[in-house]
Amino acid sequence: MKQVKKFKFPIIILIIFIGLAIWYPSIAYKSSRVTLDYFKEMAFIMPPVFILMGLMEIWVPKDKIQKWLGNGSGIRGGLISLALGTLPTGPLYVAFPMTATLLRKGASITNMIIFLGSWAALKIPQLMVEIKFLGIPFTGIRFVLTLIALIFIGLIMESLLRRNLGMAWLPPENEEMMKKQMGKTKM
């Protein structure tokens, strides 16, 4: 039963697909093609990303991340996050596990919002396409305004969330270990 509950949403989506296949076969065909394409992409990308995050979890010391990307990292931390985000590195869902790992290792929420936001909205290859179709003024102004907005969103979320994040990336036993460590560093 628990297994079924875990897959509640995939099952609902499967039912929608079956419904579409009966009533709107052309949409169902198009949708399954897209899903299959993205499945191929994810099947190639997700396992290595998770292994890389696992390696980072084990090897990268907490104080380093805290120093580079933590609350005291200031403008330099923000710039590192921006640089990491704008690098041409693939779809946004790759960034979620990375963000979770970095947050656990002591990165500040503001920096992680800048990281995720620039990953999604300010990627260099994407900006090139944008300039081509919408022009330099449009792209430039959107870049600046988006960056300002990200900093604000980060600061707002920082003050609202602090450390009460419900991150589910790691298995529970490690989470408990983390809590113990965090309890120690908080003292």
Partner: peptide, 30 residues
Amino acid sequence: KAFKVAGKALLKSAPSLLTVLGIVGLTLGI
């Protein structure tokens, strides 16, 4: 140990990954 952490995390994320795939297909199809 890193592999173990990664494997568990991937298993835990599998249902949400499948959900995302389905929604992407549906929205792009419609």
